[in-house]
Simulated scan of single mutants.
Amino acid sequence: MAEAAKSFYVDHFCCPVCLEVLKDPVTIPCGHTYCMDCISNVWADVDQNGVYSCPQCREAFSSKPALNKNIIFAEMIEKLKITSDQTTHEKQYSSEVVNLECDSCTGTKNPAVKFCLQCLASFCELHLQPHFESPAFMKHTLVQASSQMQKNICQHHVRLLDIYCHDDHQCICYMCMLDSHKDHKTSSVESERIKNQKTLEGTKTQWQQMIDQREEGLQELSRAVTSFKSFTQAAEDDTERILTELMSFIKERFSKVKELIKTHERRELSRADELRFRINQELTDLRTNTAGIEELLATTDDIVFMRKYNLLQAFPAYKDLSSITYHPCESSGTISLSAQGVCILYLFSYEHLCCAASRAEDQRRFSALFL
């Protein structure tokens, strides 16, 4: 089924330019769909003559069409990829589980269905019956038979690795505890797994809260950037309206004010981009680590759990993101004062030149220039 799904989206969601599965699919007016980068590169060569056409049907367009993302294609490709990845993971997992043979069968070996943690042996359905019928075996613990169980037995003492050594951070057997791990701090693997599982669950909850905070922070950041862009556009429009009546020497000051606005906008947008990049990076790390925790929490084998848990103990430190301290509009007063300063300069220049004029003829000339 996974192969069919893979073949389906390769055949139906293939870019005609690069002949691979569509990446960032966009649809042009004629209805054909391409990768965003592929169609952009094709049309980049015709930007000079201004003739744009579809690489498939050759339909020409008088102007460069807008490239709108094909949301349906993008969602279907993503879902099919997820299905394919899950199936591949299941195949990899199933390949690790090898059917064991019954240790009690003579001659032809029957497949084992259970493994006894006390007997340290695998049993088929037939030879498993004494564990259900005889009181001597009633307290034995049975688990699913798999090749993984062989890794849970001490190679030196042929005993179950059911003890955890805190000093060496590894699973050992009872004889190891009395021998090479003597005087070490130990506890049962089961109890240690329960304790560490609670720690992981707490970490997962904490990281989920951080994910929620950062998603909310990104939304707040987007709103702040939108508001700031609207403000800078309004400030620029007001400044242009005021400065259209000024002389050439006033226009020079207008250019400085406009450059101040642009500089401020670039600086604040740069800050916003840096903050957005950091939050997205932390979101990616948190989601990846959370997925690893979920996979570890789903592990049923205590020993495998403890081995992998030791590899996950070095968690990165994340600061609590309670709010987004990004308020670019607080500097609006500076830009408004700059615009007002130009107006004051205009009025001052007009009054100063008119008063300094010795003749009515000069006053009329200055009035014509400034008003």
Rank of each mutant, 00 (worst) to 15 (best):
N41T: 14
N49C: 04
G50Q: 09
D47L: 12
C54M: 06
N41C: 08
P65I: 08
V46L: 08
V51M: 04
D47N: 09
G50E: 09
A66T: 09
V51Q: 13
N49W: 00
Q56F: 03
N68I: 15
V46W: 04
R58P: 00
K64L: 01
E59C: 03
P55T: 05
F61A: 03
P65K: 06
F61D: 04
E59V: 11
A60W: 02
G50V: 09
N68Y: 09
N49I: 06
Q56G: 00
Q48E: 15
V42W: 14
D47F: 02
G50D: 12
N68L: 14
S62P: 03
A44D: 15
R58K: 15
R58M: 05
D47S: 11
S63T: 11
R58H: 11
A66H: 05
S53T: 01
N41E: 14
C54T: 08
S53V: 01
K64V: 01
S62R: 08
S53Q: 11
P55G: 03
N70S: 01
D47G: 01
V42M: 06
C57P: 05
Y52F: 15
Y52A: 03
E59L: 10
C57Y: 08
Q48N: 12
S63K: 10
A60H: 08
N49A: 01
P55A: 06
P55L: 04
P55K: 07
W43R: 08
Q48G: 02
V42Q: 07
G50T: 10
A44W: 01
C57L: 08
V46C: 12
V46N: 14
A60Y: 00
Q56D: 13
Y52K: 02
K64Q: 10
N68G: 11
V51R: 13
S63H: 05
A60D: 03
A44N: 15
V42E: 13
Q48I: 11
D45Y: 06
V46A: 11
F61E: 05
F61K: 05
Y52R: 00
V42I: 12
E59S: 05
S62C: 05
A60R: 14
D45M: 11
Q48K: 14
A60E: 13
V42N: 01
V51C: 13
E59F: 03
P65L: 04
N70I: 06
P55R: 09
S63W: 00
N70E: 04
D45E: 12
A44S: 15
N41G: 04
N41P: 01
S53K: 10
N49E: 11
V46I: 05
K64Y: 00
S40Y: 07
K64A: 00
S53I: 00
N68R: 13
N70L: 07
N41S: 15
Y52Q: 00
D45W: 02
K69T: 13
K69G: 03
F61C: 08
A60T: 14
C57F: 09
C54W: 00
Y52V: 00
N68T: 14
S62V: 06
V42C: 13
C54K: 02
A60K: 14
C57S: 10
R58N: 07
N41K: 15
N68A: 13
N68F: 12
W43Y: 06
S40E: 14
N68Q: 14
W43P: 05
N70D: 13
A66E: 12
V42P: 01
S40H: 10
N41V: 07
D45Q: 14
A60M: 10
F61Q: 01
C57W: 08
K64S: 04
C54G: 06
N70R: 04
